Computed example of a mutant assay.
Amino acid sequence: MDPVFKALADPTRRLLLDRLREQNGQTLGELCERLNMARQSATQHLDVLQRANLVTVVRRGRERLHYLNPVPIHEIEDRWISGFDRPRLDALGAIKRQAEENAMTVPDYVYVTYIRAGATEVWKALTDADLTARWWGHANVSDWEPGSTWEHRRADDSGVVDVTGRVLAAEPPTRLVITFEDDPGATREPSAVTFLIERYEEIVRLTVTHEKLANAEQLGGISKGWPAVLANLKSLLETGETLPQAPWEMHR
């Protein structure tokens, strides 16, 4: 927690996090423009936020996009807030969310995890139907060629497809981009998910970015779902076994 508290102690760094909360996925130039700050100063503050894992950087071509990572703040909430006066805080939070929901601009969701595995192993776990059935409870079925469709089929032999989409980009074993259509009747543009796999010696950093979310309700759902399924993926690759209970069932 020390690097997180150190990062949050500075008002300029808190302002940077506020700007990313308002509009996630900004370049350094965009952040400097919004804050009227020199690039060197912004870079120094962003480096501190990255070391605290409060901000993660995703490369898109020649651009470096900065995303707010909510995990450390969530851990602070669990450790320092939840045990004190949770019912009253929940009530106040519900009032605030209700007041802001209609005006809310839904941000992109970014989740980062580190896995002791090779990039090829992580890629296979994301795209092999049998492996996804083990850690996600659904088989991801596709030939994974750009333009192809993919299906998220239940692993209970019912054949039910809960999510469909198209493969927008496939660059094994480092980058996979898919549309994510969980509401067949929706007329809006589907959301999109990017899996970025970065190898570092004996581990990889897996960054999952979920963009173009429909509303705050969808953001809330995936904010619970992605950490659960990715924890199962991490367990499978590192130990050969998934977690003893399906982690997403805790949210029910």
Rank of each mutant, 00 (worst) to 15 (best):
L35R: 08
R79T: 14
M37N: 02
A155V: 02
T113L: 08
G61N: 01
E201R: 05
T56H: 05
Q44F: 14
E202A: 12
R188A: 05
I76K: 00
V204C: 14
I73T: 12
D156V: 13
T132L: 02
R79M: 12
H74K: 15
L15D: 06
S148F: 06
C32E: 04
P227T: 05
T132I: 01
I73V: 09
A119I: 00
G185I: 01
E238W: 04
C32I: 06
G147V: 08
S223M: 00
G225S: 00
K234N: 02
W226E: 01
T239C: 06
R59H: 14
P172V: 03
I95K: 11
L49V: 07
P107T: 04
Q44V: 14
R97D: 15
N24D: 09
V58P: 06
Q218H: 11
R205I: 04
I115R: 11
E249L: 13
D90T: 08
W248Y: 13
P247N: 03
R88A: 13
E145V: 15
S142D: 13
L65I: 04
E217V: 09
I203R: 15
T113E: 11
R153Q: 04
E63G: 01
L35P: 03
S82I: 13
A42F: 01
D85H: 11
L54S: 00
A7M: 02
P227M: 03
D108V: 04
V106E: 05
R199G: 05
V193E: 00
S41Q: 07
P227S: 09
E100C: 05
R88G: 07
I115P: 11
E121D: 14
G29E: 05
E189T: 11
P107K: 10
E238N: 10
T149R: 12
A7K: 01
R79E: 14
E77H: 08
P173R: 07
Q245F: 07
